[in-house]
């Protein structure tokens, strides 16, 4: 795929693949170095980023358009697919699509039943959304790394990173969404006093230890969403890097290319395991954390 890029070195290839398509606000006074000419911005400006320096200068005021677009598209796909089945859901003999959807629903239902013992109408749909959405996002990884970016390049799009779950913004956004639900339900079920007591009187139930307990429990609480988001991100990102490294082999000799092809196939097969597993872990952790939030001591 990368035959015409003999002059492009491997490091650039890899970096290019790890760069999101970013739209953001460049600050005033920023020296923009693009394709040879340097441009100094008089005022802050929203624009497409060309390269890592631009992205770094944008800071928080930037959007990974590719990650958001793919994740939104997959979310819409999930919603439309499942809603269309839900609208026509028959109690008679189900069709193929309905069967597929019901497999997911039943799987989620069983997991929720095993893990979560309260009554809460949010939990099960949340788990289903998390599982299917993350699964779909992860599945984009099985598409060869160069395919979509090269096609997008034909339309003048410079960067394209299609797997949303290799973007920490995406995974952390979801895990923090879960985190807010944890806080909300902890307070709702136990009351503010109960929640505060849980944070301050564990693990050492003595007033002198309150600051220490608070520190420990707060760290534990915050570690939940961060570890959850970073776990998914880390697994997916590492896998993606391996795919990209394998892809660089196609730039070498024929023998190396064939070897690379074999490696890519085996790595993809391995990911048939990793993809649903990570989606499953994300869902189960969501359920476990929310179940803990509902438990009154």
């Amino acid at each position: 795929m990368a035959t015409e890029t003999e002059t492009v070195d491997t490091a650039y290839y890899i970096q290019h693949h790890l760069q999101n398509l970013v739209y953001g606000k460049l600050p005033a006074g920023y020296e923009r170095n693009y394709e040879g000419h340097v441009e100094v911005l008089d005022e802050a400006k929203w624009t497409w980023a060309h390269g890592a320096e631009d992205v770094a200068a944008m800071g928080f005021n930037a959007v990974h358009v590719d990650s958001l677009a793919w994740s939104f598209g997959l979310g819409v796909l999930f919603c439309l697919l499942f809603a269309s089945v839900a609208r026509k859901a028959s109690t008679g003999v189900p069709g193929k699509l309905q069967n597929l959807v019901e497999v997911f629903v039943e799987f989620t239902q069983n997991n929720v039943r095993d893990t979560f013992h309260g009554r809460n109408p949010v939990i099960a749909p949340l788990a289903l959304t998390v599982f299917v959405w993350v699964l779909l996002m992860n599945m984009l990884k099985l598409i060869p790394v160069d395919l979509v970016p090269e096609i997008m390049k034909l339309f003048g799009v410079e960067y394209q990173k299609i797997v949303p779950s290799t973007d920490p913004n995406i995974t952390l956004a979801m895990s923090f969404g879960v985190f807010f639900l944890i806080i909300y339900y902890s307070i709702k079920v136990k009351g503010i006093g109960g929640f505060a007591k849980e944070l301050s009187l564990q693990p050492f139930n003595h007033w002198a230890f309150i600051p220490f307990n608070l520190l420990l429990e707060t760290i534990a609480l915050i570690a939940k969403p961060i570890s959850m988001g970073l776990r998914l991100f880390g697994n997916m990102y590492a896998g993606e890097i391996i795919f990209i490294l394998i892809a660089t082999m196609f730039m070498g000799s024929l023998a190396l290319g064939v070897f690379g092809g074999l490696l890519q196939v085996s790595w993809a097969i391995f990911h048939l395991l990793v993809i649903p597993l990570q989606a499953f872990i994300f869902m189960v952790l969501t359920l476990v954390y929310l179940s803990m939030a509902h438990e009154d001591h």
Binding site: F60, N61, S71, A89, N169, I170, A173, G177
Partner: peptide, 28 residues
């Protein structure tokens, strides 16, 4: 880097969960 993408994804997340809660889960 962490940026505004996080907020956008969070909004999508809430929207999809609410959609699922209303139109997907109960009928199925």
């Amino acid at each position: 880097s962490i940026n505004f993408t996080l907020v956008g994804q969070m909004v999508f997340f809430i929207v999809f969960v609410l959609f699922c809660m209303k139109y997907v889960w109960p009928p199925i």
